[in-house]
Design a protein around this nucleic acid. Structure first.
Lengths: 264, 264
DNA sequence: CGATGTATTGACCAGCTTCAAGTAACGTGG
DNA sequence: CCACGTTACTTGAAGCTGGTCAATACATCG
């Protein structure tokens, strides 16, 4: 996929392009069982609040760390991650963002603490008007409820991640992360199970997500491979031959329950 | 403070006691600048949804891990903490709850992942009706917005915690945690700065929060004390003589900005 | 006074980090 | 088409941070 992102104006300065709310109806994401159905009224309001559909290249900064009035996005295609930085270069990846995830909730709600968002692949996003959060609540409480749901669900995901980093050892951490990503990925491409999944991460990303060093991530991956729990050829697709055994190692429930989520 | 919690019926089975919404107006928490003002309409709705005011003793389980239709509380007085467990006894404390914090948002929003809540001190809580979350959104979107704010703010707090556990060393972690608790505590008792703060935690709690062992927490505290950054006599009040130096050690912004939060 | 929970300290060890070097894959320009 | 630069991955050796085990001190409470 070759994308020239510079041809796209930045979100903040872009003139409002021709946009038809009806495009929302054809959003292929909504057809997935991963997402809750919406009624026509809700769909119409979401369409109204939409400002533009944008492309960004891989490794692009969607939201700057520390920014407190950043943009509001829904990720339509591609992967990204949230992160925080410690000033001397130490970086902690807080979580990964997959299609359908809402981006920027924290930025809009108080300036307390803030994180950055960076793309992992070329990405397509919906950008929303700055006042969308409040409008959604005011006009359609059901969508306001969905926003609370998304925020609470986001916290639950970070909770689980914190459990890993705080109390699991390296093998367990990597097992838990890869299984979680596999489960979330499978909800988008149920067909791709057989030939493994294309993970757009390198070992540095894994290290920064797990609070480990790059070197130790490498050793841990090789250990998992040696135990027959993982095949991940260079630049190739990730295979997890025995998810149940991995889940037992990580003390993780498997299969992982994924409840249908709102898509805004 | 001597409290016999067994004299109070469990929340789920309690008959609705005599309750006057006007009590909400006199809630001493609302007088603190930490909390956003509410108008009469909002106050009335909150009062309506309130079910009871309950006491719990110290070290009581407010919410069981794994429970997915648990109660909904606002913490009125006392401290508590959220935690997750790994099955073989390993426990990760996810965060600490202080008066004004809303408890149980995650439990109500999907069953994905769940955590427990345990009190640190004797505690007074408001319990809400099960459908309060939806009613708040439907009847008063401004309160629905507040709920989203609270959920997003909760995620931001866990984000910061995850940064500590993932990328700070033991000294930095403890410094960051104690400073954060000091800042939050000070918002409730601005007067108590001089003679230190009463922290209702033991070293095991610190260890489980920071992803460290009990022994290493002890050594870290003594190291901080030796550097003159901390005085914490047994069972006594915690003094942080030089918060700025602590903050520099932890690479934390100081003074810590605390924006006014909604109180529901 | 003994029982219990919490804090403290030492000795030893292991998991993980750091440093360093080497290999493989890929894109670019000559 | 090859030389080269760049990036990601791999591996070894050494060392440090933090874990485990175990014993002791201290405090509170019945």
């Amino acid at each position: 996929v070759s994308i020239d992102a510079s041809a796209q104006p930045a979100a903040a300065t872009a003139p409002v392009p021709a946009w038809h709310p009806s495009d929302c109806e054809h959003c292929p994401l909504r057809k997935l069982p991963l997402f809750q159905p919406v009624n026509a009224t809700e769909l119409a309001l979401i369409g109204e609040l939409k400002r533009a559909e944008l492309w960004r290249e891989a490794d692009a900064l969607l939201i700057k760390e520390g920014e407190n009035d950043g943009p509001l996005y829904t990720l339509l295609a591609g992967w990204a991650f949230r992160f925080k930085t410690l000033g001397d270069g130490r970086r902690q990846i807080l979580g990964f963002l997959l299609p359908g995830d809402f981006i920027g909730l924290q930025q809009k709600m108080g300036d307390a603490s803030s994180h950055g968002v960076r793309t992992l692949t070329p990405v397509r996003v919906c950008s929303f008007r700055r006042d969308a959060l409040w409008t959604l609540h005011r006009e359609l409480p059901s969508l306001g409820y969905d926003l609370t749901w998304l925020a609470a669900n986001g916290e639950a995901q970070v909770d689980e991640h914190l459990l890993s980093v705080g109390r699991r050892n390296a093998l367990e951490r990597v097992a838990a992360l890869l299984l979680t990503l596999k489960a979330r990925h499978a909800a988008h491409e149920p067909a791709a199970w057989q030939d493994g999944m294309q993970l757009p991460l390198n070992q540095q990303h894994l290290a920064d997500a797990m609070g480990l060093s790059l070197v130790h991530i490498n050793r841990t991956l090789r250990e998992l491979a040696q135990r027959g729990l993982l095949h991940w050829p260079r630049q190739g697709r990730l295979h997890l031959p025995d998810p149940s055994r991995l889940a037992a190692l990580a003390r993780l429930r498997w299969p992982m329950p994924l409840s249908p989520r709102p898509l805004i």
